[in-house]
Design a protein around this nucleic acid. Structure first.
Length: 422
RNA sequence: GGAGAGGUGGCAGAGUCCGGCCGAAUGCACCGCACUCGAAAUGCGGCGCCCGACUUGCUCGGGCCGGGGGUUCGAAUCCCUCCCUCUCCGCCA
């Protein structure tokens, strides 16, 4: 969330930012509420000071066995007044927080203007799109024919947007997971197996709550939510803690299934593996000092891109424009893979810098040696990569005319050296 | 699920029975200074977080002892409630 002090002293910047994102939130009412809050605090603190002093005196008088009934009665009314003020202040603070927690992050100046994904800016491209001497099929046809994924039985067991990976399909998925984890391990990320269910404080820390409750699966009875990405548990590992500055940057990675309700995506990508309620993802998360944030984001992006390069799958990287950057993010690079079966690019990774937005929400701070006070670190994350989408990208890019699939060389050691699935 | 014990500053650990002089002893860690060629050891001093005020100061005030609520003039301390940890029993992958 934004720093209240920043908001109060820079209301125009905050409003401009909302405009760039195409959102509307009443900023002035926060400023008014905050002024009211300060006024009440000023008054109640005078009373509390009095109460503290008199209470001290009462202690002394009591020890001397003197009569305190009169002074006690007087203080009773002071105390009552204090609790009235306190509850008023608390209500105001709840109001302020209720708005503040729904304000999106400030975009960095590097974010290009634009209303939606159509105005994202190409950063760079890699790889050559393969020339096919036949009409390449979409992955769902390939997967079904080879019996790698059973969409119908997934729907039978769980519902639409669920699928069953079978045999070589399941093996290929697992090979991808292990390949990605091993690669990132070499690049210094610490492997983590986090909880897949988390509480609401954790979801609030990274920004999924309160605004995006409808996109989450919730276990009502236990007050727990299925994670939509490992970003959530990984970023919150140090929630509420004070880190030592010299230990930054911290680099974590995790493979987890991810769960999304996809509310509002009815009718979109209903076929195939593109948009599932449950999918596998390897996620990269960094906690860094503000000075190194850009450098670390570029490295993270590089780490994610490297997976596609090793797999020899063409892709492009785009800078998200102001209207497309997510709620918590301040800047985002998307990596999009080429899918010849569908003749389009699809997002396979989103690498973002969150500035201090998440760390402030989650209460992650760090201390610099010799400096007093604490500071909020920047958090970064990116998919490295979405496994299901990598799986389908392999199918579409490595397909043969007969419907068989060549296994990319780097994956063969993870698949008993199988070269072709047919 | 049942019974019990406990959650205090970066860590360890007193204080809680008998409410006030406790934002909190002591030790460790950390940071200055002294000693030293340097280091260790030792000695001295410092050492939490958040909010508010203005005369922006090595200032003043308020709040914080797992979260929330209550009793009281006054709560780390008493009561209620929730969360978490540990031990034992039961059940179970």
């Amino acid at each position: 969330m934004l720093d209240l002090k920043f908001l109060v002293s820079n209301p125009h910047e905050v409003k401009d930012n909302l405009a760039r994102r195409g959102e509307e939130i009443d900023i002035d009412s926060i400023i008014e509420l905050n002024q009211k809050r300060k006024d009440f605090i000023k008054e109640v603190e005078v009373l509390k000071n009095k109460r503290n002093e008199v209470s001290k005196k009462i202690g002394e008088l009591k020890r001397q066995n003197k009569d305190i009934s009169e002074i006690t009665k007087e203080m009773k009314t002071v105390s009552n007044k204090i609790s009235e003020y306190d509850s008023e202040i608390k209500m105001i603070e709840e109001d302020i927080n209720g708005i503040l927690i729904r304000i999106p992050n400030m975009l960095l100046p590097e974010v290009p203007d634009g209303k939606d994904e159509s105005e994202n800016i190409l950063s760079h491209e890699w790889g050559n799109r393969r020339e096919f001497d036949f009409d390449p099929k979409p992955h769902w046809e390939l997967a079904e024919k080879l019996n790698l994924v059973d969409f119908n039985r997934g729907a039978k067991i769980a519902g639409s947007r669920f699928s069953v990976y079978i045999g070589a399909g399941a093996k290929l998925e697992r090979a991808l997971i292990n390949f990605m984890l091993d690669k990132h391990s070499e690049n210094g990320y610490t492997e983590v197996i986090p909880p897949l269910l988390v509480n609401s404080a954790t979801m609030t820390g990274t920004g999924q709550l309160p605004k995006f409750e409808d996109d989450l699966f919730k276990c009502e009875r236990d007050g727990l939510y299925l994670i939509p990405t490992a970003e959530v548990p990984l970023t919150n590992i140090y929630a509420g803690e004070i880190l030592q500055g010299e230990n930054l940057p911290l680099k974590f990675m995790a493979y987890t299934p991810c769960f999304r309700r996809e509310a509002g995506a009815h009718g979109q990508d209903t076929r195939g593996l593109i948009r599932q309620h449950q999918f596998n993802k390897v996620e990269l998360v960094k906690i860094v000092t503000p000075e190194t944030a850009w450098e670390e984001l570029k490295k993270l992006l590089e780490d994610a891109e490297d997976i596609l390069r090793q797999l020899c799958i063409p892709y492009r990287v785009v800078k998200l424009c102001s209207g497309d950057v997510g709620f918590s993010a301040a800047f985002t690079f998307d990596i999009e893979v080429w899918l010849p079966g569908q003749k389009c690019y699809r997002e396979i990774s989103s690498c973002s810098i969150f500035t201090d937005f998440q760390s402030r929400r989650a209460g992650i701070r760090y201390k610099v040696k010799g400096k007093k006070g604490t500071e909020y670190p920047y958090t970064l994350n990116g998919s490295g990569l979405a496994v299901g989408r990598t799986f389908l990208a392999i199918l579409e890019n490595y397909q043969n005319q007969d419907g068989s699939i060549v296994i990319p060389e780097v994956l063969r050691p993870y698949m008993n050296n199988v070269e072709v699935i047919s």
